[in-house]
Simulated assay, not measured.
Amino acid sequence: MKKQRAFLKWAGGKYSLVEQIIKHLPEGDLLVEPFVGAGSVFLNTNYERYILADINHDLIALFNTIKEQPEKFIDDARVLFNPQNNQTAAFYELRNFFNYTKSDYQKSLLFLYLNRHCYNGLCRYNSKGEFNVPFGQNYDRVYFPEDEIIAFSEKAQKAEFVCASYHSVMQNAQKGSVVYCDPPYVPLSVSSSFTSYYSIDFGIDDQKNLATLAENLAKKDIPVLISNHDTTDTRDWYQHAKLHSVTSRRSINSNGSGRKKIDELLALYS
């Protein structure tokens, strides 16, 4: 089966690792993702139903917009992808509009624009909740992901998108479901730290709490698969899971040749 790409760029996206993840995901009627991100696992699995969650309201609003009115969204979003908007001044003007508009629909259009035009496709907010990733500068031509949006909208009819915390989503998981967790990864070094997402820190306590929640769900016959960097800490946190070490490439880097292979860990609680 040909893999389906997400329509968003995403730091830590699982497109390159999706075959390995699928190999270790148990069967079930419902896949629950507390950290859905761009949705690569969702797009490349075949569960009957999905509950896909994230704490980022803008991301969930975008997914619901595409689920409910894909044709209108595509027509309106395409207008933003033109040479005039692929310039520094236009980018910051649109980024400012994104940060201050109260319209979920306008934010959804601009989220896609910013994702495709900003530096490395990152998603980052400041302490005020404002999107603050700078202009990408070096994109001669910016790809408009129409085909990927259409594929997402079709698959989205099987999904419920929820803006909620990971612990709330996991505590509400029901028997018969499978949970896949792709949390912000533990940093491999100080310079590579990416624990702040949507103005909320995901620190060591959250990493440990996630492992505890997974253990508790497994005791209720709800299997949980967690992905993270393969480190001494993660192996300690996930010591009660079945561990699988896999190799992948970093999905986002400003220099394609700099996308080095890294070791990741898949921890299965079942």
Results as ranks from 00 to 15, higher is better:
Q4D: 02
G12S: 03
Y15A: 08
S16M: 12
L17R: 03
H24L: 10
H24E: 11
P26M: 00
E27D: 13
L30T: 15
P34H: 10
V36N: 05
G37I: 04
A38K: 01
T45R: 10
N46D: 15
I51L: 15
N56W: 07
I60N: 08
F63G: 01
N64I: 03
P70T: 09
E71G: 00
D76T: 08
D76S: 12
N82G: 05
N85P: 09
N85T: 06
T88V: 12
A90F: 04
E93S: 14
N99S: 07
N99C: 07
T101P: 01
D104A: 12
S108N: 02
L109R: 08
F111A: 00
N115H: 13
Y119A: 05
L122F: 03
R124E: 04
Y125K: 04
N126C: 05
S127K: 14
K128F: 06
G129S: 13
V133P: 11
R141A: 07
P145V: 01
I149N: 02
A151C: 05
A151L: 12
E154Q: 15
C163L: 05
S165K: 11
M170A: 00
Q171S: 15
A173V: 13
K175D: 06
V186I: 13
L188Q: 08
S189D: 12
V190A: 15
V190S: 15
T195D: 10
G203R: 04
I204D: 13
I204E: 15
D206R: 00
D206G: 01
L213T: 00
L213I: 00
E215D: 02
K219C: 02
K219E: 14
K220M: 01
D221W: 03
V224Y: 11
D230C: 09
D230T: 03
T232V: 14
W237F: 14
W237M: 13
Y238M: 07
H244A: 07
S248W: 01
S248M: 10
S251M: 15
S257A: 14
K260L: 04
K261I: 09
L265K: 01
